[in-house]
Design a protein around this nucleic acid. Structure first.
Lengths: 311, 311
DNA sequence: TTTGGCTATGTAACTGGTTACATGCCGTTT
DNA sequence: AAACGGCATGTAACCAGTTACATAGCCAAA
């Protein structure tokens, strides 16, 4: 009774003592059960069950050097694209026996570096970063600790980290090509923040060059439905008439669609909309969105497999 | 040069040797810098920097007993409600010096229990579970390991774990009251899966009793826009005319809205819609959704603070 | 000059596992 | 009967930190 209450958690030695075997044997039961005699094993396993023993993760990690933890540094979880990606990363990692720590960075390189540092402190064996544009502090950390990292949401062969993602320039170009094909001449481009966001920068640059022969207006806003609404309002006020809107993100397109309806403009009659992402919900807007597919789930899976293999 | 390449990562002894002090002193520089002489400390800190030393999280955890990790067991990340919640949990936890491991369960109690087990194995100091309905295996784990856990998305004073969340019955009742007030008589209720999902069960039960005097049809489907679309299609086919739809989740309401439009029914002219959640996007549907607000962000913050305090 | 107390640092024993190596036992083979 | 080999198990060193306790050095009071 005193035992029950004062003891915190049983450890290997407790089990070994109670089962009348050595610590090594208990450890073997845990790690290589096949090498220990059947009845001994049964006895030890019974004691483990009885005492409610669970091996200390810390102690395991300390001599195996393996924490079975990976981290993910993403701008936000409040955007479907990233939550979709994280979701599939997590699902893939469990298959490989890893757990996933998420850390959000708000697209702030400083915050990213400090959270990366925390991840390393907490013992991750590797992590994901979003995009290819990072602070020196982060690169420094990677160099010093040699922790494996893969970049997601961005595909760039020449980058010094493995990248798993899509070609953001190509995605924008594809959308632009579609607009050009339809013969649009006056295009409003609505995109997310450019500071610290290489993905948006790549898309905007590609768009500028693809639409160089067209009249274009660029509007920046937060990547949200409200952001799309606000940008579209400004566009209607400042640069109507236009015949197309290109949203760099489906969620902003939802907002654009809403605002166009509100303004009495029909889609695609008066204005065409194209965007990038192809979220599950984009199929059910009115009309359905024309959007460049970014295979977020697939990317998550690939990235997870890449990192799991590496470590 | 041989050192550079063959050595893995510098440890406490390496630093102490190089700095010409004992391991205890280095440890003190790390943990209680104030007690070590200024110049000694400076020397040690310089060496730490020079060697790129980072203390092993595992070794720290093993004797402090603190992993600084918490886990979250949620049904899915692919739903805005949960990603919103997780997002605010994560943001709150960093303020308290914790990192967050996410694990998705698909609303499957078995999966939940096994992931809980993994979380414990990996060394979390506590975790969040969703709802109050769990497998025996999970309760057993909690009892044996005494790991703190708080339940979210559900408020129930009498539960044996602390709960941080909303009153799901009340939310449903509020929505129903609104429909009754408008005088609706024939109501279609669209809800998510009931198996293993106490939140949905509570809402449906509350709805049944609130609308006992009305004609009601209940449709179940996955919590997604597509799920809402499909359920609404069936409703139109099987039980028109109805004058209201109550969706237990905004995302399903998006689908319902879409499908009603497609069928040529006007909202709220022909059919009223109410739902639960109040997602950021719900303000921008056409017409804006009437929805019972569930303060996901606030809940995340509270839950995080609760658990952080506890451990 | 001795004693006492304070501070800065070192020594070594812990934490809870893993594992290289040692040992003991039993059945074959010569 | 002696020697050998293989298997099951035990002993103790190790991983990378923390920390209780010991010690050394210094200054002031007796």
């Amino acid at each position: 009774m005193a035992r029950e209450s004062k003891k915190k958690r049983p450890n290997l030695r407790d089990v070994s003592r109670e089962a009348g075997v050595s610590v090594a044997t208990v450890s073997r039961v845990l790690n290589t059960p096949s090498v220990v005699q059947k009845d001994t094993r049964a006895r030890v396993e019974a004691k483990i069950e009885e005492l409610g023993f669970v091996r200390s993760a810390a102690a395991f990690a300390i001599n195996s050097g393996r924490s079975r933890l990976l981290g993910a540094l993403i701008p936000t979880l409040e955007s479907d694209i990233f939550s979709l990606t994280i979701s599939s990363i997590e699902q893939t990692l469990v298959e490989h026996g890893f757990s996933l720590i998420v850390a959000t960075t708000d697209d702030d390189p400083e915050k990213e570096a400090s959270k990366a540092r925390e991840l390393v402190d907490v013992g991750v064996e590797g992590f994901f970063v979003t995009g290819v544009d990072h602070s020196d502090a982060l690169y420094d950390l990677l160099r010093r600790t040699k922790v494996p990292a893969v970049a997601i949401s961005y595909y760039d062969d020449g980058y010094h980290l493995p990248t798993v993602g899509y070609d953001n320039r190509l995605a924008a170009e594809t959308a632009c090509a579609h607009l050009l094909e339809l013969g649009h001449k006056r295009v409003v481009v609505i995109h997310g923040p450019l500071t610290g966001n290489d993905r948006n920068i790549a898309r905007v640059e590609a768009t500028r060059s693809a639409l160089r022969a067209q009249s274009c207006w660029f509007f920046e806003g937060p990547i949200s439905v409200a952001g799309g609404v606000a940008a579209t309002q400004r566009a209607i006020k400042e640069c109507a008439p236009f015949d197309a809107i290109f949203c760099m993100s489906d969620v902003m397109a939802f907002g654009a669609l809403h605002e166009l309806h509100r303004a009495g403009l029909s889609v695609p009659g008066d204005v065409s909309i194209v965007s990038i992402h192809n979220l599950p919900a984009s199929e059910f807007t009115h009309p359905p969105l024309t959007t460049v597919n970014l295979p977020a789930r697939q990317m998550g899976r690939r990235a997870a497999e890449c990192l799991a293999q590496w470590v």
